[in-house]
Write a protein that binds this DNA or RNA. Structure first.
Lengths: 134, 134
DNA sequence: GTATTTGCAAATGATTTGCAGTGCT
DNA sequence: AGCACTGCAAATCATTTGCAAATAC
């Protein structure tokens, strides 16, 4: 089971609940707590939301997964991977990844996704000049 | 008062509370409900959070303001303007705008902001191929 | 004057916490 | 065996709603 090893490589205990979370996250690409909760109940009838939240945070702390917040949508989570952009459909809410290449981003995004792009929101995070001094 | 006209140009009644919201939003650039609430209480001791939320939504409905969600931060709001990118400091959380030019985005962002850029998250929204058919 | 907006209080929704019992390594 | 994890219930925080009184136009 490769997901078990994935967890262990981050020094996390491989509990069945955690393995299921990772599995579903890989399968869905981007998943909200609510979706995760409903899907996971097929396997673990008595899993609790608290467990999901706790695990989500544990996994974020070690950068195994990442939080994806988008205006007008519920918070979703995804497995960490190379830098990439998200294309979101304003109509159905679907979220897709596209390779991230800043030089050709917009053209590529429309070519690859066939979306009719209307808005772009970009967040670059790092350390600001003041904080670099510390 | 230009903010009064701004509101009216969107067909919204120019109540003092709304004018204060716009003023503070211009002054702060990006502001959370919490910050807005505390600042606005200097003028309106008895303003309620419900009023803020209602107005925020009214203004979003007409695209006067926009919601800005960022992983690890509280939701913030900003006045709508040209497409732009945000640079966020991982250390202090400060959010700054930078002009948006996809072709030179990364280089420019580091030059302009002096941030040590570590992560990029981009959301492009539009209408997906399936939804375009409808 | 009329429709909209405000502020309050209560409701709902999302996330977090404490704790006793269980399970991974 | 020992420490971390789970599930439950309760607590907290964020957002929304209903309603009567106040206000913009």
């Amino acid at each position: 089971m490769k997901h078990e090893h994935l967890l262990k490589s981050y020094q996390l205990k491989a509990t069945p609940q955690r393995i299921a979370i990772i599995e579903l996250m890989f399968a869905a690409g981007h998943i909200s707590i609510e979706e995760l909760f409903h899907s996971i109940q097929n396997k673990f009838t008595s899993i609790s939301l608290a467990t999901l939240y706790k695990n989500i945070h544990t996994m974020m702390d070690v950068s195994l997964i990442r939080e994806v917040k988008i205006a007008g949508q519920k918070t979703k989570y995804e497995i960490e991977k190379e830098a990439h952009a998200h294309v979101m459909c304003k109509c159905c809410g679907e979220l897709k990844d596209i390779p991230f290449n800043p030089n050709t981003l917009l053209q590529t995004s429309m070519d690859i996704s066939n979306y009719q792009a209307e808005e772009v929101s970009i967040v670059i995070s790092g350390v600001c000049p003041e904080c670099q001094k510390k």
